[in-house]
Amino acid sequence: MPFELPIDLVRKQYPELEILCALTPSEQKAAFKARDRNGNLLCLKIISPDYQIDRLQRELLALKGIKHPCVAKFVEYEFCVDESGEHHHLIEEYVEGSDLADHLGPELRWTVERAAPFFRDFASALAALEGERVVHRDLKPTNVRVRTDGTPVLIDFGLARHLDLPSLTPTAYGARIGTPKYFSPEQFTGTRRDIDCRTDLFAMGLMMYEALIGSHPFWTPGMSWDALCDSVCTSEQCFGREGFCDLPPQWQALLRRLLAKERIHRPSRASQVTKVLEKLG
């Protein structure tokens, strides 16, 4: 169940902000588009009382250290205590534009000329995360905004993990966090030890495939968890599809590596993907 709050209540609670509209909420956060007194557009996220505060602090830690034009800017975090309990909210930059999900589909196939700069910037943002030893773990088209100039911005670090800090989730379950449709093989079958920066690269590979081919490489509507798991962990059929075979060989090689089942066969770093896409662009 998403955590939702009436917009009028939020307007009363945050008089210093002009609350423009409600955004899609998640289980943990109600989200609103707002404007501050200087005219800056912001994303106000009000945290559900059920949310683990440890996890919120991780998100803040992840966001604070990363300064990159393709990562949503962190603006403010505050909490207060009143008779009804603790209230937490955080404010991020609001990214004008649309979700990447609005740009993907069978009728919306991208050219390689369009894909190269977009995913180069995407990989560059992932490289910034790597630099801070942060894994996003929930990259999906609704967590990637597309600015009006066509550049990507990564948002929602609610499931991000700092690789050098102890996990907040038991080892055996620590991998199964995120959105199954954009899971990597290690998120289905591994433990939290198996999650690293290459997990995010797999998710980016899924979105790159969707952009270039027009369909998800492993998922079909109505697919069960087991069938999706089996497809992600073992199937190579997506590399035999017509749209894939029509791609230039170097793009095929890059996609195959991003979508490799074993992490050792994926690019070791996002910066490597950035360089490859610079060459391909």
């Binding site: 790597e130 030890r193 198996d194 920066c197 992490r263 050792i264 066969h265 070791s268 770093r269």
Partner: peptide, 12 residues
């Protein structure tokens, strides 16, 4: 071999 290499190559 693949599992070991995947694990061994997670550092920067």
């Amino acid at each position: 071999t693949n599992a070991a290499l995947s694990s061994a190559t997670s550092g920067n």
